[in-house]
Nucleic acid binder design. Structure first.
Lengths: 150, 150
DNA sequence: CCTTGACCTCAAGTCAACTTGAACTTGCAC
DNA sequence: GTGCAAGTTCAAGTTGACTTGAGGTCAAGG
């Protein structure tokens, strides 16, 4: 059981390319010690950190946001229960919201199959207020994109 | 109730910037008729099409994939029930998978709070087989990224 | 007629998140 | 001690999804 991981090892275990790991370091998401010969040696907790980063990306967080969240975790010691709880709590609403959006979309698509939505008037995917032009933007049945699909 | 929408109107109703709409046209996602003065005039169903495109992006589909899916819909007439059903069926697993991933992540974070995961050995975010180096990549508790966070 | 705002095209720029390549160095197995 | 896979830096390139800007056109009101 090695205490330090080379970049290749961390890459293999995390499934993240070495170039990406170097990039993560560059933007301050992870850090590494160096051997006398200037090679990176990662501490074991880095593995967990990288896994967390990947997970967070899934939720739709940018690396910047992830960095911000991770900065609330202590750099010097393993995070305490409280540290984790704080982080988890801050991401939780985001995850829930994302799930909800997806469920809504799924239901909408389902509904479309059965609803005879071919008549544009009743389709859930269609804006109910579409004829009421001028009363605010219509057809925006989705929440504002929030810069995600960028 | 107008039969044709100018790009500005479509933009306002769909919440998608004109430049984006032109881009969508460039990559073949939508199309428009032209006035004698060369201005775009969109047919009403385009509104629904654009909404669908945005939804699909949420699920994590690229514009290429969306174009592919939309190509299975008829260009000439409004999609039939069967057309919709086909499209919905093809996206459904994707949506479900995404939801499942998010739920797993949420549960993992929750678990981490209560599980005393500070001992690296038991944390769900940590790879259970991490000590078994060489037996395949460890710590890949997440599904292969599938090129999404790119 | 003239202005004004919405529209047009086309080329170039941007941004995140990496990847690739060149040119060079380390570390370990034989 | 030598070979070579695996590591290093740094600059530049890539991809997706747009946005911005320059330079010009069109349509309606005053």
């Amino acid at each position: 059981m090695v205490a330090h991981l080379s970049i290749g090892e961390l890459s293999a275990r995390s499934g993240v390319a070495p170039s990406a790991l170097r990039y993560y370091e560059e933007v301050g998401l992870i850090s590494a010690e160096r051997t006398s010969g200037n090679q990176r040696r990662y501490l074991r907790p880095t593995l967990r950190r990288v896994a967390l980063i990947r997970s967070a990306q899934r939720v739709g967080l940018t690396l910047d946001e992830i960095a911000e969240a991770l900065d609330t975790l202590p750099r010097d010691h393993a995070p305490t229960k409280a540290d984790w709880a704080r982080l988890s709590r801050s991401w939780r609403p985001r995850i829930d919201a994302q799930i909800e959006r997806l469920e809504r979309l799924r239901d909408k698509l389902d509904g479309c199959i059965g609803c005879g939505c071919l008549s544009l008037k009743t389709c859930a995917l269609n804006n109910p207020h579409d004829e009421v032009a001028g009363r605010g933007p219509g057809a925006v049945f989705l929440e504002p994109t929030g810069r995600r699909p960028r």
